[in-house]
């Protein structure tokens, strides 16, 4: 048992059982998140990255969604074997989450102070201070301006960036070892996004927390992450240290995705494009899922899903072209 591992996910399968068929949103996802590390989980909408996050929190949205296979090892304990009551104790304390839309993450009828009081401990470390005093301290930690006034305000009186700070404060207050953030800056303006990313990075370095950063944006990955896992159609197709993946993207999907983003440094007349659409998750091909859109597709890509091949230290990709001769 490696003491350096914060979260280990092994062969996770989460499926949606619908009348029209089984949608394999997460279909065999494995990764490790080390202590104090930021791991980016990148992919396009519908690739299963958000469902992965919800599976880890055991917060799947409805009856139809079930995690059917796999292990989620948090500090060596499998979350999938925990009862609902045990999970309530674990969420917020050991593993926490920030969602995309701060608008819906806060309850509109309670003041900020009220919402924070849910996570504030009045017995242990915080004994002797009023809830409001503690709430102000919590807000100060996320660098919210004028926290003394903010605790008495309602969510609608705050801007999106401020609200997201409050959400972050609630998620991080009890010092979880693992934080999952699902596109936390997508709803924010660019200058506010930069502030928020800097804040997250700072708090993460102070507390040695591990972050699973879910995003569709390779720019966020380049800015924030130590390692990256690229997800396509329910599976991770490439994983490795950020620099290695950017310098030497090995899966054709990763290559195409990085090439299709317009660059600030140099302008090209035309952007690289990926033709076609991702496969339907209820009707997946037997072979490589990117085969239909891949410029290098061969017969063996259709026949079987490629194994994961190592291309560098901690850098691996699932593509037959990488098979050692």
């Amino acid at each position: 048992m490696n003491g350096n591992i914060a979260l280990e996910v092994r062969d996770l399968h989460t499926h949606f059982f619908l009348r029209r068929g089984v949608v394999k949103a997460v279909d065999g996802v494995s990764f490790t998140l080390h202590r104090g590390e930021v791991l980016g989980l990148v992919g396009e909408s519908g690739c299963g990255k958000s469902v992965t996050a919800l599976s880890l929190m055991r917060l799947l949205p409805n009856e139809a969604a079930r995690t059917v296979q796999g292990q989620i090892l948090l500090e060596g304990e499998d979350l999938l074997t925990k009862s609902k009551r045990q999970m309530r104790q674990i969420r917020g304390r050991k593993i926490s989450m920030i969602l995309q839309d701060p608008q819906t993450s806060l309850n509109p009828v309670f003041t900020i102070g009220n919402q924070l009081s849910e996570v504030i401990d009045t017995k242990g470390a915080g004994r002797g201070k009023s809830v409001m005093q503690q709430a102000i301290e919590v807000l100060r930690k996320v660098k919210l301006s004028a926290p003394e006034q903010r605790v008495h305000q309602y969510p609608h009186e705050l801007s999106g960036g401020m609200k997201q700070r409050v959400v972050g404060a609630i998620a991080m207050h009890r010092g979880p070892g693992v934080l999952i953030t699902d596109e936390p800056t997508t709803a924010l303006d660019v200058t506010i996004q930069l502030q928020y990313l800097n804040l997250l990075k700072e708090l993460q370095q102070d507390t040695d927390m591990a972050i699973l950063f879910i995003t569709h944006d390779f720019g966020v990955v380049a800015r924030m992450c130590d390692r990256v896992a690229v997800m396509y159609a329910g599976r991770i197709v490439e994983t490795g240290p950020v620099r290695d993946v950017f310098n030497n993207p090995s899966h054709p999907y990763t290559q195409a995705l990085i090439a299709s983003v317009p660059k600030m440094q140099r302008s090209a007349a035309r952007l690289h494009t990926i033709e076609g659409q991702p496969p339907v998750l209820s009707d997946l091909p037997a072979g490589c899922r990117f085969e239909a859109r891949c410029p290098y597709a061969e017969a063996r890509c259709r026949a079987a899903y490629p194994d994961s091949f190592t291309v560098g230290a901690g850098h691996a990709a699932s593509c037959w072209r990488l098979e050692p001769a």
Binding site: L194, Q195, G219, M264
Partner: peptide, 22 residues
């Protein structure tokens, strides 16, 4: 605005102007 554009490579970090406030 320009420095808020996210880098397209982890090693590309230009001058960073982080605006205070909103």
């Amino acid at each position: 605005l320009l420095s808020a554009v996210l880098p397209d490579h982890p090693d590309h970090r230009g001058e960073e102007i982080v605006l205070s406030g909103e």
